[in-house]
């Protein structure tokens, strides 16, 4: 068995552009999911009954449907309904955000409900309003407690961006498939890309865990 890594060297720019897009897609998807997830999580906890019912349905549906199915549906089916066709990148960003935001919402809810009732009462006792208590007391503590879960959400999001290859977003996974197909060297290409993904995801989750250990006491009431 002999290995030939030269196709990788020849097409390194092509792969690097894929890595760049993977990072861009991951960062925007994490940011959008966090904003949407925060809104959904708070709406699910403090919204009116109809809103809560709706949001629970949305969250549980996203827990039930694979992100692959969501992406494919948004990319292929939505244009048929709406008449507009999506750029693959935007379809992927939308699909991943809709999917991951549901998890963010659940994590935020779990974070907030884990905070003792006494903390709310201490806020009430000095005359704070409901909104002030959420902003000043509950969210800051919940965010600290959420950090480990947030770390795994970041890692899941990066992994999910690879699925965008299925709808031809030219990110790292897709570029790897292309190089592997053209060079007939799939083992070398996929193994190298494995290392790249590992070097991308592993340090991020580690850093978040490290940081959490340092700040954990800020969330321990």
């Amino acid at each position: 068995m002999d290995f030939d890594f030269s196709p990788l060297i020849d097409s390194w720019r092509f792969l690097a552009s894929g890595l760049g897009l993977t990072i861009v897609l991951s960062v925007t998807a994490v940011a959008c999911s966090f904003v949407l997830g925060l809104a959904v999580g708070l709406g699910r906890m403090y919204g009116r009954t109809w809103l809560r019912t709706l949001l629970v349905f949305y969250i549980d549906s996203m827990r039930a449907i694979p992100v692959f199915v969501v992406l494919v549906w948004i990319y292929f089916a939505v244009p048929i309904i709406s008449g507009y066709s999506f750029d693959p990148f935007w379809a992927a960003l939308t699909g991943i955000t809709i999917h991951v935001a549901a998890y963010v919402a659940e994590v935020i809810r779990a974070g907030i409900t884990s905070i003792r009732k006494g903390q709310v009462q201490a806020g009430l006792a000095i005359g704070m309003s409901g909104a002030q208590i959420i902003r000043q007391i509950l969210l800051p503590q919940a965010i600290v407690r959420m950090l480990p879960a947030f770390g795994s959400i970041v890692s899941v999001t990066i992994k999910d961006t690879a699925i965008a290859a299925v709808i031809a977003v030219p990110e790292l996974m897709r570029q790897a498939e292309t190089v592997a197909g053209q060079s007939y060297r799939p083992i070398e290409v996929f193994t190298t890309v494995m290392v790249i993904y590992f070097l991308l995801i592993f340090p991020i989750t580690r850093l978040i865990d490290r940081y959490y250990i340092r700040v954990a006491h800020l969330g321990r009431s």
């Binding site: 890692s155 690879a162 299925v166 498939e177 996929f190 193994t191 494995m194 590992f198």
Partner: peptide
């Protein structure tokens, strides 16, 4: 453990597809 939980599953599937037979 650290390797296989920090990789996109899709990549792992492709990798297995080409590497397993070898």
């Amino acid at each position: 453990v650290e390797l296989f939980r920090n990789l996109p599953l899709l990549l792992l599937v492709y990798w297995a597809f080409y590497v397993m037979p070898v």
